[in-house]
């Protein structure tokens, strides 16, 4: 017994326990619900039969049903556009800002800190504010763009089916910029100054320094930021609910919102679960591709 305690105190058991505790928690409160979602996706179930456990197994019939819905394809494309554009724009703008505020001028770090204000705002509040800013008839964004001569008439940001998805992306990028900027600042700060000096001495221009010094040295940070951004963007439900509700005519509907609509607006829990499972599969696929690509890079 004392030996066990000693091993616990000094050996790897202590480490294992620490990891196991957190993983066990996540297993119970995150993995199990996900497994339950997978189970529900192959059962005949709706909001009202949720309480009973004996539910008929229907195989992949729910999948056939949901994927055959006319909006399924639309939602899939929207989700892809939403995630890719959001993540890329957040990353690019975040990187530009991180580099800009890294320069030496008075107040640089204070201003950078102010950007974080966007991060601490609840998404629901941000959605409400943007809905107000982007109102078609009396929104201030239309007015500002109009007075700058950039647009004629009004853009109906929320109700024009060609624009609504991009309004959602704008608001989401706004939310995501601070996080990207901050983590990238951390990455930038980690690059030793003498590497730059050496590059300058070798006659590298600013652009060359960026391409051949900054980017390669930031690879690990970029990877981390990218995967976290993708996760945050795929989780973005509150913003959609407050801003466009997926409309008009599903023009800005994305998978995470659609799944919720199926489950909670038409009580089709099975259908909602199907969409959720497809989301899980897609993310796993992307993650595997990402891991494999970094492996290959290391080997090459």
């Amino acid at each position: 017994m004392t030996r066990m305690i000693a091993r616990f105190r000094d050996g790897s058991s202590f480490d294992l326990t620490l990891v196991a505790l957190a993983l066990a928690y996540l297993f119970v409160f995150a993995a199990l619900p996900m497994l339950y979602t997978v189970v529900m996706s192959v059962q005949k179930i709706d909001m009202f039969t949720l309480g009973t456990l004996a539910r008929p197994f229907v195989g992949l019939r729910n999948y056939a049903h949901v994927l055959a819905m006319p909006v399924a394809w639309r939602v899939a494309t929207n989700t892809a556009i939403f995630v890719v554009l959001s993540v890329v724009l957040q990353l690019v703008i975040g990187l530009v800002l991180a580099i800009y505020f890294r320069q030496d001028f008075p107040g640089a770090s204070t201003l950078r800190g102010l950007f974080l204000a966007g991060w601490v705002m609840p998404a629901l509040v941000v959605g409400a504010i943007w809905r107000w800013l982007l109102a078609g008839d009396f929104g201030v964004v239309n007015f500002l763009l109009g007075s700058l001569g950039l647009i004629k008439g009004h853009i109906f940001w929320i109700s024009d089916p060609h624009v609504a998805l991009y309004s959602l992306i704008i608001a989401n990028v706004w939310l995501g910029i601070p996080f990207n900027m901050l983590l990238l600042s951390v990455g930038l700060a980690a690059i030793p100054a003498d590497v730059y000096e050496a590059a300058s001495l070798d006659g590298a221009s600013a652009i060359q320094r960026f391409l051949f010094v900054t980017l390669p040295m930031m690879r690990a940070t970029l990877g981390a930021v990218l995967s976290l951004s993708i996760i945050f963007t795929m989780q973005q439900y509150d913003l959609v609910a407050a801003l466009t509700q997926g409309g008009p005519s599903n023009a800005s509907n994305v998978a995470q919102y659609w799944s919720w609509q199926l489950s909670f607006e038409t009580y089709d829990i099975a259908g909602g679960s199907v969409v959720a499972v497809v989301m899980i599969l897609v993310v796993i696929l992307v993650a595997i591709l990402y891991v494999r690509s970094t492996r290959l890079e290391q080997q090459a």
């Binding site: 109102a135 078609g136 008839d137 109906f156 929320i158 109700s159 024009d160 509700q245 409309g247 008009p248």
Partner: peptide, 21 residues
């Protein structure tokens, strides 16, 4: 009618009537 008719609730729509819009 405003294109925002597609995203406005009845109460919001009537607000524009009340405002003279």
């Amino acid at each position: 009618a405003s294109p925002d008719t597609l995203v406005r609730s009845q109460y919001d729509s009537t607000a524009t009537f009340n405002a003279g819009d």
